[in-house]
Amino acid sequence: MKICVFGAGAIGGYMGAKLAQVGADVSLVARGPHLSAMRANGLTLIEENATTNVAVTVSDDPADLGPQDYVIVTLKAHSVPAIVGKIKPLMGKTTTIVSGVNGVPWWYFHKVGGALEGTRLESVDPGGVQWDGFGPDNVLGCVVYPAAEVIEPGIVKHIEGNRFSLGEPDGSKSERATALSKVLTEAGLKAPVRPKLRDEIWTKLWGNLSFNPISALTHATLDVLCTDPATRLIARNMMLEAQTIAEKLGVRFPVDVDRRIDGGAAVGAHRTSMLQDLDAGRPMEIDALVRSVQELGRITQTPTPITDTVLGLTQLRARVAGLYP
Rank of each mutant, 00 (worst) to 15 (best):
I83Y: 05
V84Y: 06
I87H: 07
K88H: 12
P89N: 12
P89Q: 13
P89G: 13
L90Q: 06
M91Y: 10
G92N: 12
K93C: 01
T96F: 02
I97Q: 00
G100N: 04
G103P: 04
V104S: 08
W107H: 12
F109S: 00
K111C: 03
V112M: 15
G114C: 08
A115H: 10
A115Q: 14
A115E: 14
A115D: 14
L121Q: 08
L121Y: 03
L121H: 06
E122Q: 15
V124A: 06
G127H: 06
G128D: 04
Q130G: 00
W131N: 06
D132A: 15
D132H: 15
F134S: 04
F134H: 03
P136S: 14
N138A: 14
V139T: 13
L140E: 03
G141F: 00
G141I: 06
C142D: 04
V143T: 09
V144R: 05
A147N: 15
E149A: 12
E149D: 13
V150H: 04
G154Q: 07
K157G: 00
K157I: 01
K157Q: 12
H158R: 12
I159K: 15
G161C: 03
G161Q: 02
G161F: 00
R163E: 11
R163M: 12
P169L: 03
D170F: 01
D170C: 04
G171D: 05
G171N: 07
S172M: 09
S174W: 05
S174H: 09
A177W: 05
A177S: 12
T178L: 13
T178D: 09
L180T: 05
S181V: 06
S181W: 03
V183T: 13
T185M: 00
T185G: 11
A187M: 08
A187K: 11
L189T: 00
K190N: 08
A191D: 00
P192C: 05
R194A: 11
K196Q: 13
L197Q: 12
R198A: 10
D199H: 15
W202P: 05
W202M: 10
W202E: 04
T203N: 11
K204C: 01
W206I: 06
L209V: 06
P213L: 03
P213E: 04
I214Q: 05
S215E: 03
L217V: 11
H219M: 09
A220K: 11
T221K: 15
